[in-house]
Design a protein around this nucleic acid. Structure first.
Length: 531
DNA sequence: GCACCTTTGAAGAAT
DNA sequence: ATTCTTCAAAGGTGC
C-alpha cells in the first residue's frame, strides 16, 4: 500500500511514481472521460435500444439518451472534483483519515422532503442526487425503513449546505463504520482512520446481539444526525425495534428479518411484515451480515445516481453496464481509491465480525439460475446465449474514441489497463474502453467469473490470483485468462510504490504484458462478433 | 412477490 | 494451484 507509507506526501500524488502516471495523462483523461462518458451513454443507449427496445423509436430514445447538459450536473462535477482533490490531499496516510473519500460523495437525496418511496425506492422522477453518501449507511429501501435509519433531508441538507464537500474533521467522519468511543475501544481500529469522537453512544446493542454488531457502533455527531435523520419521520415505522431509535444497525447487517422483516427484536415492529415464521427459526438469531462491498460496488453506489441522472435509463442492468464500462475508464488512481476503500472496508468488516465468513451468506439468496451452461451445441460453440446479448459497445464507427486509437483499430491500441499502465501517458480510460467489448460481451459460458485481480495481499492474505507467471503482480501475468484480464485494472495503491515506478519490475512486467496482451486483442473482436 | 438481469470484485468451495 | 460459484447493490422487467 504505497500511500500507506504515510508521512510522505500530502497527497496521492506525493508518490513520485504515481505522479509520473498521473501528471501525464490526467488532464487529458478527464476530458476524455467526460467525452467518453457521453459516448458511453450514447453507445450503451443505442445498443440497448437495439437490443431490447426494437420497438421503441430510436430517434426518440436518442433524444432521451443524449446526456442533457444540466447545471446541477456541472456543479456536481465540480463538487466531485473537489472531493477528489480533497481526497488526494488527505490520502497521505492512506487511511482516509479525513474525508469520506471522494468515492462517496453522494447523498441520494430524494427530493427535499421525502426521499424514499414507500417501498424504499427512490422516486425516479423526483430524486435528486447530492453528494455525500455514507456508503454503508446507505440503507436500502425497505430495510432502511424498517430499520428506521432515516435521516431527514434536513440533515442531509445540513451537510450539503454546510460547505457541501466540506472536508470533515478527521475525527468527524469515518466513511464507513463510525465507531463510538466505546466501540473503538472494543474494536481497535485497524486502520486508524476511525478516530474516537465525541460521538454519543448511538446504538444499543440488541440483547441477543452480535458480537461486534455494527449497531453497536456509534457515529459521530454529524453522522449520527445524518443517519438518524436519514428518513423523514413519518417514514420511520417504529422508533424502537430493538435498536436505538437512531439505531443504525450497520448497513452491512441486514438480518433476514430485517431485509424482509426486521429481526427478532422487531417483534414489536410486526406491522411491517408477516411474521415470516420459518425464516425466524434458523436465521433470526443471526443477523444477516452483508458482505463488504468491493471496489466496484462502492463505485457503483457512488456513480449510479450520476449515471441515472444523465440518462433516462433506469434499468439497473443497463446502468450497470455503463458503470462497468466507466469503471474501466477510470484512471488507475481513481480506481485505486475504491480498491483501497474496499480493502479498508473488508478490514473493518473482519474486525467487526471476526467470525463472519462470506460463506455465511451462501444460500441466503435464491439460487441463481445457472446461466453459464450452454445447453445447445450451438451455444457451446462460443455463441453467446441470447439471454446475455452482446452489447455493441464499440460500434464500428465508434470503435475508438481515444486519441491514441482514433486512427487505428482495436488491434493497434493497448486495450488493457495493463497496457495503459505500460504507457502512463495514455489515459487508462480510452484504452480500457476498448477492452470493454471483451469483458462485457464475451461470456461464452455465461458468467465467466474470472478471478479478477485480487488485491495484492488480499487484505493481508495470499493473493488468490497469484499467477504462475513471474510477474510481480498477479494481474500482469498472462495465462489462459488473459482475455479476462484484459479489462482488469490494477489496484494500484495496493502496490508498493517501488512497483509503481515506470522503471520498476512491475512496470516492466506491465510493458511486457502489454505487448502480449496486444496480441490477444483479436480475441475481443472474435468474442464481440458473437452476437 | 420474487427471480432475473448486469456489472466487478472478494471469498469460499470445488477440482 | 487453479477454476468455479456465490454474493454484494440496484431497480426495472417479466413471470
Amino acid at each position: 500500500m504505497p500511500q500507506l507509507n504515510g508521512g510522505g506526501g500530502d497527497d496521492l500524488g506525493a508518490n513520485d511514481e504515481l505522479i509520473s502516471f498521473k501528471d501525464e495523462g490526467e488532464q487529458e483523461e478527464k476530458i476524455s472521460e467526460n467525452v467518453s462518458s457521453e459516448r458511453d451513454l450514447d453507445e450503451v443507449k443505442s445498443s440497448l435500444v437495439n437490443e431490447s427496445e426494437n420497438n421503441s423509436s430510436s430517434s426518440d430514445s436518442e433524444v432521451n439518451w443524449r446526456p442533457r447538459p444540466r447545471p446541477e450536473l456541472e456543479s456536481y462535477e465540480k463538487q466531485r472534483e473537489y472531493f477528489a482533490e480533497a481526497l488526494r490531499r488527505q490520502q497521505d496516510g492512506g487511511f482516509f483519515k479525513g474525508p469520506p473519500y471522494a468515492g462517496y460523495p453522494f447523498l441520494m437525496i430524494p427530493d427535499i422532503t421525502n426521499p424514499y418511496l414507500s417501498n424504499g425506492s427512490l422516486s425516479p422522477s423526483t430524486r435528486t442526487y447530492l453528494q455525500m453518501k455514507w456508503p454503508l449507511l446507505d440503507v436500502p429501501g425497505t430495510a432502511a425503513l424498517k430499520d428506521s435509519r432515516s435521516p431527514t433531508p434536513g440533515h442531509l441538507v445540513m451537510i450539503v449546505s454546510s460547505g457541501i464537500p466540506r472536508t470533515p474533521h478527521p475525527s468527524e467522519l469515518s466513511p464507513y463504520y463510525p465507531l463510538s468511543p466505546g466501540a473503538v475501544g472494543q474494536i481497535p481500529h485497524p486502520l486508524g482512520w476511525l478516530v474516537p469522537q465525541h460521538g454519543q453512544h448511538m446504538y444499543s446493542i440488541p440483547p441477543g446481539g452480535f458480537r461486534h454488531p455494527y449497531p453497536a457502533l456509534a457515529m459521530n455527531a454529524s453522522m449520527s444526525s445524518l443517519v438518524s435523520s436519514r428518513f423523514s419521520p413519518h417514514m420511520v415505522p417504529h422508533p424502537s425495534h430493538g435498536l436505538h431509535q437512531t439505531g443504525i444497525p450497520h448497513p452491512a447487517i441486514v438480518s433476514p428479518a430485517i431485509k424482509q422483516e426486521p429481526n427478532g427484536d422487531n417483534a414489536s415492529n410486526s406491522t411491517h411484515g408477516k411474521p415470516s415464521v420459518p425464516v425466524k427459526k434458523e436465521e433470526e438469531r443471526k443477523p444477516h451480515i452483508k458482505k463488504p462491498l468491493n471496489a466496484f460496488m462502492l463505485y457503483m453506489k457512488e456513480m449510479r445516481a450520476k449515471v441515472v441522472a444523465e440518462c433516462t435509463l433506469k434499468e439497473s442492468a443497463a446502468i450497470n453496464q455503463i458503470l462497468g464500462r466507466r469503471w474501466h475508464s477510470l484512471s488507475r488512481e481513481e480506481q485505486a481509491k475504491y480498491y483501497e476503500l474496499a480493502r479498508k472496508e473488508r478490514q473493518l468488516h473482519s474486525q467487526l465480525y471476526p467470525g463472519w465468513s462470506a460463506r455465511d451468506n451462501y444460500g441466503k439468496r435464491k439460487k441463481r439460475k445457472r446461466d453459464n451452461k450452454p445447453d445447445s451445441p450451438q451455444e457451446s460453440n462460443f455463441l453467446p446465449q441470447p439471454k446475455k446479448q452482446c452489447v455493441p459497445y464499440l460500434p464500428s464507427e465508434k470503435m475508438c474514441d481515444s486519441p491514441t486509437s482514433s486512427h487505428g483499430s482495436m488491434l493497434d491500441s493497448p486495450a488493457t489497463p495493463s497496457a495503459a499502465l505500460a504507457s502512463p501517458a495514455a489515459p487508462a480510460a480510452t484504452h480500457s474502453e476498448q477492452a470493454q467489448p471483451l469483458s462485457l460481451t464475451t461470456k461464452p459460458e455465461g458468467r465467466t467469473h474470472h478471478p479478477h485481480f485480487p488485491l495484492p495481499g488480499k487484505a493481508s492474505g495470499s493473493s488468490s490470483n497469484s499467477s504462475s507467471s513471474s510477474s510481480s503482480h498477479p494481474s500482469i501475468s498472462l495465462h489462459s485468462q488473459s482475455a479476462a484480464l484484459l479489462s482488469r485494472p490494477i489496484p494500484f495503491t495496493t502496490l508498493p510504490p517501488s512497483l509503481l515506478s515506470p522503471s520498476s519490475p512491475f512496470h516492466q512486467a506491465a510493458l511486457h504484458s502489454h505487448h502480449a496482451l496486444m496480441q490477444t486483442q483479436p480475441l475481443s473482436l472474435v468474442t464481440k462478433s458473437a452476437e
